[in-house]
Computed example of a mutant assay.
Amino acid sequence: MTRASLDKKPRDVAQMFDDVAEKYDLTNTVLSLGQDRFWRKAVTRAVDARPGERVLDLAAGTGTSSMPFHEAGATVVPCDFSVGMLREGKRRHPELPFTAGDGMRLPFADGVFDAVTISFGLRNIADPGVGLAEMLRVTRPGGRLVVCEFSHPTWKPFRTVYIEYLMKALPPVATKVSSNPEAYVYLAESIRAWHDQPGLAALVRDAGWERVAWRDLSGGIVAMHRAFKPLDR
């Protein structure tokens, strides 16, 4: 696997996720000490999917993040570039229309979704700016974007402890619970190299979104950015 110096080759990254699909949700819960459930609930509230709306859940993996939108009465399309993830997701949730797609070339028409959301997947797109522009393209004017992604803890002493956990504690834990612990070394490196909160906000804004704001979760370990497509786009 290419290291997360962030020479991210889509085929390699997709293969990495194929390899961890079966235990992916369990591993995330263990490594995040259960915080992943809190983060998913925050995203669900921010998207605020309503009956009859169309929601694109990008980097949806096995569809765990998609189910709340489905249960709210929205038409949700879980999309991912990992065929292994999609296969596992379809086994668990046969009622959902899982769709294979590259974040930089989404297989959807212009302006078809009321909301687009991506959780912990934007940093794995080879060019996140292109991915954000694609999300803008498939969203209707006035539609909304919710990005939940690892970020930089806001309290400096805790930030140091957090980085130590990522690089030293995470790989041994992953060895015990994951079928591909090396993948989690890549993920730890990609988190460390990722934008801070203002940096990601600027990236979202540069892609054409407006009214960009963010909310820190778990002390800034995760940040949830929200934005809207201009009405004149």
Results as ranks from 00 to 15, higher is better:
V138M: 07
L145T: 02
G121K: 00
F108T: 00
R91D: 05
S82G: 05
L106G: 11
A133H: 06
R91T: 04
F113L: 02
P107E: 07
F113Y: 07
T99F: 13
R105N: 15
R140D: 00
V147F: 04
L136V: 08
G131S: 12
R137S: 10
S151F: 12
D110T: 03
V83R: 14
L86S: 07
G89A: 08
M135H: 05
N124H: 13
I118M: 08
N124R: 10
N124F: 11
C79T: 01
A126W: 14
G131D: 07
R87M: 13
H152R: 08
N124M: 09
G143H: 05
P107Y: 10
M135C: 01
P107N: 04
H152V: 07
V138G: 05
R92P: 09
H152Y: 05
F120G: 06
S82F: 13
M104V: 10
A115D: 08
F113S: 08
P153K: 02
D127C: 06
P94V: 13
D127V: 02
L132M: 09
D114M: 07
F150P: 03
F113P: 00
D127H: 09
T139N: 09
R91A: 08
K90G: 14
S82Y: 07
L132C: 04
F113M: 03
G103Y: 13
D110R: 09
R140G: 00
T139K: 12
F108N: 00
T99L: 15
M85A: 12
A133T: 01
V147Q: 00
P128E: 05
R105H: 15
G129T: 02
M135Q: 00
V138R: 06
A126T: 11
L145M: 11
P141G: 03
E149T: 03
E95H: 12
G101V: 13
L132H: 06
T139V: 10
E149I: 00
G142F: 03
V130K: 04
D102Y: 06
E134T: 08
G89E: 12
A126R: 15
D80W: 04
L86E: 09
A126V: 07
P153Y: 09
L122Y: 10
D114R: 04
P107V: 01
S119L: 12
V147K: 05
F150W: 14
D80R: 06
I118C: 02
L96M: 13
P128R: 02
R105E: 15
V130M: 04
R144D: 09
K90W: 15
A133F: 11
R105T: 14
A109G: 00
V147D: 01
L106R: 15
P97N: 15
F108W: 06
V130N: 02
C79V: 04
F108K: 02
C148R: 11
